[in-house]
């Protein structure tokens, strides 16, 4: 199972990186979304997989009797999903806003903050 999930993570990262290499910002964002899912899945897999054994402690005992699934990675992923959702939603809103104001989604033509013209020399040469 770990091998299968590791391969899924690999495929997600490969697809994500491929999308991120595009100049179109929306593709870049979709790539990021895939990468963030890959990261979450990697944490899940790194926490070891235990099938069909929820981390519940029987009544009256102090610890579970058999090997149970590790709940910590799931808690971490839950946090990461929420944070990732917020960040990616912000990024999407930013891209929409930038498209409206700058009129383009092509990263190569976004040169407002870094104009291609040579920086102005300080002193006027006479």
């Amino acid at each position: 199972m770990e091998t299968a999930l590791a391969m899924v993570v690999g495929i997600l990262i490969a697809t994500g990186v491929y999308l991120m290499l595009a100049r179109n910002l929306l593709r870049y964002l979709f790539g990021l979304i895939l990468l963030s899912n890959a990261a979450n899945l990697a944490i899940f897999t790194a926490g070891r997989l235990t099938r069909a054994s929820p981390p519940l402690i029987p009544e009256g005992l102090q610890a579970p009797e058999v090997a149970v699934a590790n709940p910590l990675p799931q808690a971490l992923i839950l946090t990461a999903i929420v944070i990732g959702f917020g960040l990616l939603a912000f990024a999407l809103a930013l891209i929409v806003r930038a498209y409206r104001q700058l009129g383009t989604l092509d990263a190569d033509t976004m040169r407002v903050a870094e104009p291609e013209t040579k920086p102005k020399r300080g002193r006027k040469r006479s």
Binding site: L25, Y28, L32, L35, S36, A38, A39, N40, A42, I43, A46, G47, P73, L76, A80, L87, L88, F90, A91, L94, I95, R97, A98, Q101, L102, A107, M110, R111, V112, A113, E114
Partner: peptide
């Protein structure tokens, strides 16, 4: 917006790398 896009794009990658590193 122009500067913000570049800032956000790079820093989100950093976030994901950090998360992956922590998981591993």
């Amino acid at each position: 917006l122009d500067g913000g896009i570049k800032y956000v794009a790079m820093n989100l990658v950093s976030t994901l790398l950090m998360l992956t590193a922590i998981g591993l």
